[in-house]
């Protein structure tokens, strides 16, 4: 089994929103960045992957098994860091660590201690006294202590300062030194995804707009501008799909960023 997870034609509907026909997978050894505007379906996709929601139709396989058969076995090997994830805020770091550790068969306390020390997280501190950045770093440390094969993070870097974000990037790339592991993280910060993701999935209005390796996506789009002197008017710049791009005489094109690609896809979806 080369993929840590596979979603095949997954549908899930709610009263005011539905996720339509999502097919997505992630090979071991890589990071998948899940991009999209707020409310596009990123969190729903992640909840489906964790079996916090069940799909209306379609198939979900995680670490080679399905939740119907081996939910707790799968969850032994998943680490999860939620957006605004709250443990019981009146408990101390030590208490929480001790509580969580009892659920897992594997527990690397030494590694966890190192991480807590590195991040300056004092063991006797109550969780409600941690800053937002510290909370996320604590959650990630905790999620890595049972040495998961798949780490899932929902908006881990949103609202954090650049230093904390850098620290998180380092933790993720460190985990990937083991090529059997894989990471999925959702973000609306395209910069973070562009920097460290190997695969990128873009979800817009409940649909998968794009899913490929980051290199292929960046190759697939160009930022095009046509100088006025050529007499053609095509606006100032636009993002164009490389395949449909015929070379205009005098046309300038340069690499587009993920942000620019995302914005152009969102505009297209709204048209």
């Amino acid at each position: 089994m080369n993929n840590v997870f596979e979603l095949r034609n997954v549908y899930k509907s709610f009263n005011d929103f539905h996720l339509e026909d999502i097919s997505l997978h992630l090979p071991r050894g890589y990071i998948l960045g899940l991009l999209g505007p707020n409310g596009a379906g990123k969190s729903t996709t992640i909840k489906l992957l964790l079996n916090l929601l069940e799909p209306d139709s379609g198939e979900i396989q995680v670490l080679g098994s399905s939740y119907a058969h081996s939910e707790t076995l799968i969850k032994q090997k998943i680490g999860y860091v939620g957006e605004n994830q709250n443990f019981y805020q009146d408990l101390t770091i030590d208490w929480t660590v001790n509580f969580i550790s009892r659920f897992y068969r594997t527990w690397n306390q030494e590694k966890l201690n190192d991480m807590l020390t590195n991040f300056g997280l004092k063991r006797q501190k109550q969780l409600k006294d941690l800053s937002k950045g510290q909370k996320v770093l604590f959650n990630i440390s905790l999620a890595l202590a049972h040495e998961p094969e798949l780490l899932i993070l929902d908006e881990p870097t949103s609202g954090l300062d650049p230093i904390a974000r850098k620290e998180i990037m380092d933790i993720l790339l460190d985990m990937l030194q083991d090529e059997n592991k894989a990471i999925l993280f959702s973000s609306h910060i395209t910069e973070d995804v562009e920097q460290i993701a190997d695969y990128v999935a873009i979800i817009i209005k409940g649909r998968l707009a794009l899913f490929d390796t980051k290199e292929a996506i960046l190759d697939g789009f160009r930022k095009v501008s046509i100088p006025k002197s050529t007499g053609k008017t095509l606006g100032s710049t636009l993002i164009a799909n490389t395949q449909t791009l015929s070379e205009y005489k005098g046309m300038h094109s340069q690499p587009a960023s993920l942000e620019e690609i995302l914005i152009s896809l969102v505009k297209e979806a709204n048209r």
Partner: peptide
């Protein structure tokens, strides 16, 4: 009420426990 306040059931559901 504590579980509700801290979304405890969501947290607990992500752990390997049925």
């Amino acid at each position: 009420l504590t579980e509700e306040k801290y979304e405890g059931y969501t947290l607990l559901s992500t752990l390997p426990v049925s």
